[in-house]
């Protein structure tokens, strides 16, 4: 093992900065086959996540009860809710698209797996969001969801009836987790490039595109 291979910093640099060209990370062109509306649903999902974080931060400004008593607060709650609905719609369309393109080809399995993890982490984050509405819906969901988590032994640690715990998870740990997984997912996409058409042994005449 050479001295650079033992050096933690050198190894980190190789697996991150040196694993990608600047053109891969911030591209100004794409392979000619990247020409379908199905390709916009990844970025639309990210845009919805940006809106979720922005509207969520607005909702944190005056505390969990603000939206019950203020029409401005209620509007931002509506923005947050509809951003969630859009987020999942776009993410599911993105998932369907990637499935039918078999986008895991060419050593892209990790990209697919991080996408699935992001989906599941988002569902858990959404659930905690529903738990902290501090209204009848959140009360009912808390009492129902507790049975599911208790049945797996998880409820003893994540107590859906503990509103304070759900609030802190929803505004701190879970969005951070979703954010990290999504960034990782995007970096994998950028590093590997967009998967080419299904045609492993195909030959094409250059210049046609």
């Amino acid at each position: 093992m050479s001295s650079t291979e033992k050096n933690w910093t050198a190894r980190l640099r190789k697996s991150t900065l040196e694993s990608m060209e600047p053109q891969d990370l911030l591209p100004d062109n794409q392979p000619a086959y990247v020409a379908s509306w199905i390709y916009v649903f990844g970025v639309l999902t990210i845009a919805s996540l940006v809106m979720l974080i922005a509207t969520g931060l607005v909702l944190t400004l005056e505390g969990p009860a603000w939206w019950h008593v203020s029409s401005v607060g209620h509007f931002w709650n509506s923005m947050h809710l509809w951003s969630v609905e859009l987020f999942f719609v776009f993410m599911v369309v993105h998932l369907w698209g990637k499935f039918w393109m078999a986008a895991w080809r060419g050593k892209r399995t990790a990209t697919w797996v991080t996408g699935v993890i992001a989906f599941m982490a988002s569902i858990l984050t959404a659930l905690t969001g529903y738990l902290i509405q501090t209204n009848f819906d959140s009360q009912w969901i808390a009492t129902e969801a507790k049975d599911g988590f208790n049945a797996m032994g998880i409820g003893a640690f994540f107590n859906t009836l503990n509103t304070g715990q759900a609030i802190l998870l929803h505004v701190a740990l879970l969005p951070l987790a979703v954010g990290i997984i999504v960034v990782w997912h995007i970096l994998l996409v950028r590093r590997k490039g967009v998967v080419p058409p299904i045609d492993n042994d195909a030959t094409i005449e250059g210049g046609a595109f």
């Binding site: 020409a35 379908s36 509306w37 916009v40 649903f41 369309v93 595109f209």
Partner: peptide, 23 residues
């Protein structure tokens, strides 16, 4: 919501993407 996901998926696949200049 569910139907709109299928409709959006179908539209995304069938509507032609504006064709830019290739290099």
């Amino acid at each position: 919501i569910i139907v709109s996901m299928f409709v959006i998926f179908a539209l995304a696949i069938f509507i032609p993407f504006p064709h830019g200049k290739d290099e």
